[in-house]
Amino acid sequence: MIRIENLAKTFGAKRAVDGVSFAVERGEVLGFLGPNGAGKSTTMRMITGFIPPTEGTVRVGAHDVVESPLQAKRLIGYLPEAAPSYPDMTVEGFLSFAADMRGLAGDTKKRAIGRVVERCFLASVIHQSIDTLSKGYRHRTCLAQALIHDPEVLILDEPTDGLDPNQKHEVRNLIRELGASKAIVFSTHILEEVDAACSRAIIIDRGKIVANGTPAELRAMSVFAGAVTLQASGADTETMTAKLAALDGVARVEAVDGALRAYPRDSSASGRLVRTVVELAAREGWQLDGLRTEEGQLDEVFRRITLPDTVKAPSR
């Protein structure tokens, strides 16, 4: 549904987005991650046709966003980062305006408004003027506007920003549910959301894509992925560390909070690692008090690939 090729945007001398390519199909929820100023919002603004790209193409459905903007925009529902709305309007007036702009009328319009009001939990504030609403409600009013025409493509810029934990949960569920039948791109800072809602994630840094994969694939990039952590007694820590380090497939051993963590040499060694460790413990007569295989941590992956080189070098 969304096909982006070599997208670039230059503001003065700064290259905010630098050669980004990816595609999102129907049924996919793409999480768009990256530090502040990485180019997430700029990319989304180019997809939705708000700002023209300096280079590259964006196709939404069968339409090029630059060449046939109106056809492309009809397919898109967009929640901008600041969730803007007209403060002097009531929630109902604003949604009615959005419906009119989308060409909905009569019963279809009434049903569409009813549907998004229910979906975004706005029923209690429907007749209130938007400037009297709290941030969470204003945010959801703008989200409702994006959903009003049941679009095939949803672009959501930080949809859970400023919501309380319950609302965050609801919105994540909503995204996952909608993702079954739509192509969705949403940006976030919150890494748990990638697990909670995405089928795929892209990490962007300084305008370039630095990682692209399923949440599990991204986690596997972590240095922790496949590491075995064990708590055992029966020998002193030095002996255990030495014996573990001597095992085939173990790169290094590290003491963590009274336990020992053995890192695999490479990803092919990680599958067998836990068995080798158990066999060693049995051979040496250690009593195992705890044993687990690490899954890898998204935040560690995120930090490692988005921090400048000078900062990340010593942490390895």
Binding site: L70, P80, P84, Y86
Partner: peptide, 13 residues
Amino acid sequence: AGTLELLFTLPIA
């Protein structure tokens, strides 16, 4: 108010 972004991403010339 940022509504310019909303307006120009709606299907209107």
